[in-house]
Amino acid sequence: MMDKILLAGFGGQGIMFLGKVMAYAGMLNHREVCWIPSYGPEMRGGTANCSVMIANEEIYSPVIEVADAGIVLNQPSYEKFVSRIKPGGVLVVNSSLISLGSQRPDIHLIDIPAGQIANQLGNDHLANMVCLGAIISKLALIDMETVQQAMQFLIGKKKPELLALNLSAICKGIEYGYGSGLHPI
């Protein structure tokens, strides 16, 4: 069993961190994981994307052609990656920044105003966590418990004051994911 996940957005939207949370959640749950950043000449700005694979057997090819799930935080990322979700897969879309153009009727699309929700929570940078919440229930190999452990591991020590805030953003995303945002196939 394997979750192949694509994550994309503007540089600075916390894409790499989002991927790391998922990878650590898998690792702390004794899964095989593989996190791959897109790396390029720019340190900031531009689009950033990374891929995460979580499996319960050894991961051979680390190259994702079509993913089981994806999160896109901005318009260019949506346009680039919407075709790379496998039929029946899930794509979480930050509708605060993305207007859905050509849609794919064969995938589950969760459009969630992650930017606005993050804003209401008082921190624009939490859109990534809101989207993480929205996708958790669609993944086979990580759940809220392991994500919570990963968050604790990654920021619990360094920035404990941010931990609760991040977790509440994830919870908002989870609520939304179960709610009205899910477009059936």
């Binding site: 994981v33 593989c34 996190w35 991961i59 680390p62």
Partner: peptide
């Protein structure tokens, strides 16, 4: 290669 160098695995 660059892929292996940048990739994160346990």
């Amino acid at each position: 290669d660059g892929f292996l160098g940048q990739m994160m695995e346990p």
